[in-house]
Design a protein around this nucleic acid. Structure first.
Lengths: 130, 130
DNA sequence: GTTGACTCTTACATTGATGTCAGGGTTTAT
DNA sequence: ATAAACCCTGACATCAATGTAAGAGTCAAC
């Protein structure tokens, strides 16, 4: 199939399919006219690439084990587990950082609301003093 | 004070101080020789900028309320609260997404470990059959 | 007056997957 | 045979704060 058809079948843009190829993730053969010709299996390959991209892995990392996981189950690809571990560490670091910022933001918001309440209370007291 | 001194006092690079100026965050006067001359108050200004950058706000957003918060308490700067709210929403979206990826990763890791255990158990059984 | 430490402006690089456009070829259907 | 719809490559843009470097001016100390 041609690139446009693969794009439709997978929901991945033509631009991205070409990019995956430039990163060594997929290697369609070329027809005499220069057009890329994809095997029907390419659909599964692209779905697999999407899956790993959604896990936050880079195309470079995916390139390191894609051939293996397309042939075997993940458990038999030694490269996968270390990547998962380090990605998980990344994510945990990001979670810590985001939660710190979140707490900081919430504290600042609470303190603003409190000050505003106090000043409006002050205004009420003044009103009540009439 | 000159830019190098302010950089040392605040821990912010000379490059970044010039960038903050280009974004309208700080406006040192110029001496006859063209050098930037910062008031001692600039230290507090830069510390304030650092604080908001660490909250994940952009220089553009900071530019929108910095003048106000340098003169008043945050609670009196109407621009701040909406920014905090939308930043908090951003962060919560990111937290949800990261947690989804984390769960996904953990499940995949668990399933790999389980398959590996099963196959090594299988190997043990075979060994025990001698 | 020379050297070293500052400062100035301008500009390119970084990161990574994707969008978009230009300029040109191919195919398909009418 | 012509128009529409595809395909090709190459290249620039995106986002944002920061690093880095070149080329040139300034200042301080010795």
């Amino acid at each position: 199939m041609k690139i446009g058809e693969l794009a439709k079948l997978t929901g991945v843009s033509v631009r991205s399919l070409r990019y995956y190829e430039s990163q060594g993730l997929i290697s369609p053969i070329r027809q005499a006219n220069g057009y890329r010709e994809y095997s029907p299996l390419a659909v599964e390959t692209v779905e697999t690439i999407k899956l790993y991209l959604n896990l936050g892995l880079s195309t470079e990392q995916i390139a390191g084990f894609l051939h293996c996981v397309l042939k075997n189950k993940e458990a038999f690809c030694a490269e996968v587990m270390p990547l998962y571990r380090s990605k998980l560490e990344d994510i945990e670091r990001q979670l810590v950082e985001l939660n710190q910022i979140k707490r900081n933001l919430e504290e600042r918001m609470a303190s603003i609301l409190q000050e505003q309440n106090e000043s409006s209370l002050g205004a009420c007291k003044l009103e009540n003093l009439e």
